[in-house]
Nucleic acid binder design. Structure first.
Lengths: 130, 130
DNA sequence: TTCCTTGCAAATCGTTTGCATAATG
DNA sequence: CATTATGCAAACGATTTGCAAGGAA
């Protein structure tokens, strides 16, 4: 299964790189279609899956029932606004020791973890208190 | 929307309390049906949703595309085996300070967080190395 | 009698897949 | 030429919903 070049894949990746709001497949589709009008939704899904399998992007399952995608593959955590659903990158100190904490009393092997934070984003905070 | 008693809801809740493996709606349905043969899947979904909304159970979205349910609503974290998919309760020291860590550089309000750990469970560890 | 809950089936939503065709190496 | 990728549409799996009938307060 050697990878072959595809214009569609390039456009998808490029688009994702311009965004830091973790778009869904559908959002990617709608945007990419403006530059590449007859791309199909299936192709978008296939490429997003492929790109995340080879580690070029990350697939985020934040619990809202829809997959989100992130071109930033560096280790970082996310905040999800319970009001508007926005997903925001968190810049925070390393918390990898929670993995060691979890390993202490566990019979098995822990390889990774994911941490999601929930609450109100700055926008919604202001909006709701006014 | 005052809550009225329903036998179905009781049976669902009772069943969930007997399990610590975080079953899906479908598993709940199949089991409950043995005691209550003509319950419908829709009713199971409706009650699981209702029960989690009033805080009597917890809905877990671990990222496998299916919702799992947990009768244990006390704060605790979960481990998901990447090989067999099993979801296991973790008994571990409190790590709530990761929320404070996250709050430090964040403009907004963080109310909660969820942490999931991934790897191989004890069973699969042994299985795969033999 | 009010209105919450049910069973049933159809609908919805996000995602995946089969297939014939097009593009890459 | 061999093989991967595409567009399209149909299929899929999990979950939700509309509706008429049943049951609790």
């Amino acid at each position: 299964m050697a990878l072959k070049y595809s214009r569609q894949r390039e456009v998808i990746k490029d688009f994702l790189c311009t965004r830091k709001d973790h778009p869904t497949a559908d959002i990617v589709y709608m945007n990419v279609r403006q530059e590449y009008p007859n791309i199909s939704l299936g192709t978008v899904y296939r490429n997003l899956t492929l790109l995340s399998e080879i580690g070029e992007i990350r697939r985020l399952r934040v619990g809202d029932g829809v997959d989100h995608f992130d071109a930033d593959t560096s280790p970082h955590h996310h905040f999800i606004c319970s009001h508007c659903g926005r997903i925001i990158d968190l810049k925070m100190e390393n918390i990898d020791y929670i993995q060691e904490t979890a390993e202490k009393d566990f019979n098995g092997r822990i390889d990774s973890y994911s941490a999601y934070f929930f609450g109100l984003c700055e926008n919604c905070c202001n909006l709701l208190q006014s």
